[in-house]
Computed example of a mutant assay.
Amino acid sequence: MARQREAWDLGAGRALAPADPDVTLSVVVPFYNPGDALAPTLARLAAVLDATGHTYEVIAVSDGSTDGSERTVVGLHPRVRVDVADRNRGKGAALRRGFAQSRGSYVAFIDADGDICPSHVPAYLEAAMVGGHPVVYADKRHHESVNPSTTKRRVISWTFSTVVTTLFAVEARDTQTGCKVLHRDALAAVFPYLREEGFALDLELFVALGQAGRTGSLGMPVAINERLAGSTISTGSIVRTLKDTLRVFGRCHVGRAYAPARTGTPPAGVASLHPHRTEAPHGAVGAADAA
């Protein structure tokens, strides 16, 4: 397989284009070696979205998976397609690949491991549509949330939230829980400035939205289920995320990299791309064609 273009380069093509009027919602599902958890998660997601009556697409992005999990969704649903990256780069890179291909007036993303029920996606979509929020996000700290996480995970979450509160002035109390719905205009305003390839992409998204003046984010309750796949929390991932967070801090407060988002000034190089490109990037296949 030919090497994929840089994720942000790919992303600057489609995410800045107008929405397809025939697609209300695009849902990006990044995954890396999820094993047997992928197919049931996507099946439940398609089922709850079918029930809404909204037109939608699901873009499942393999971040260089090596377990063949993309083959488990062959023929799963006509509105589910799979995009396969040729190497592992991180959740943020996978999300940006998916954002680049999205066509909906709203763009959502949810983790593939099954710990968050897909029924939250249409609920958050409805809240975004009715309330006019630029982003509706899963908030584990909401008083109605159900979170059976281990003590270790709770401590990690609390520590990271404390770091974020100390370093950044973001609206979101919980930047990292993996379910969010964004208005396409809000995504388009900040997408050219996103650079993170790992878990810190979630944080970077809120930082860039704040810099762009896109306020009014809404946190909603989330029910965390028992994880169907293995945990992605490890000492290495924690260290990487903290390093990435400091990089976002430097980009925000030292380099002022997100400040131009308020005026809509594109980063260097974006104008030379093709913002209205509509063809699918190399590596994108429908569920029925996945091999």
Rank of each mutant, 00 (worst) to 15 (best):
L203V: 01
H142A: 09
A7W: 02
H143T: 11
A172N: 00
D86R: 13
A288T: 14
A128Q: 03
I59D: 11
M1I: 06
R81G: 12
A85K: 03
A280W: 13
A259F: 04
D202R: 01
V48H: 03
V82M: 05
S102V: 02
L218T: 02
V222N: 11
V61E: 01
Y32F: 15
R5L: 14
V61F: 00
H133S: 02
E279F: 12
A17H: 05
H133A: 09
L49Q: 05
V285K: 06
V155H: 07
S62E: 04
T162H: 09
A280H: 10
P21E: 12
G255K: 13
V84G: 06
L76Y: 09
G216Q: 00
N147S: 14
A208V: 07
T166M: 14
L182E: 03
A169T: 14
G230S: 12
G250D: 12
G198C: 11
H143K: 09
A12D: 15
T159N: 08
P78L: 03
P281Q: 07
A189Y: 08
V84K: 15
A47I: 02
R89K: 09
T265K: 11
G210L: 06
I233H: 10
A123C: 04
P78N: 05
Y137V: 04
L273P: 02
R173Y: 06
D113Y: 10
D113I: 09
F31K: 08
L125N: 02
G210S: 05
D67S: 08
G230Y: 03
T215W: 12
G92D: 01
V248Y: 00
L194W: 10
P40F: 03
F249E: 00
I110N: 02
F99N: 01
V80P: 10
A7E: 05
R141D: 12
R89G: 03
P40E: 02
R89S: 11
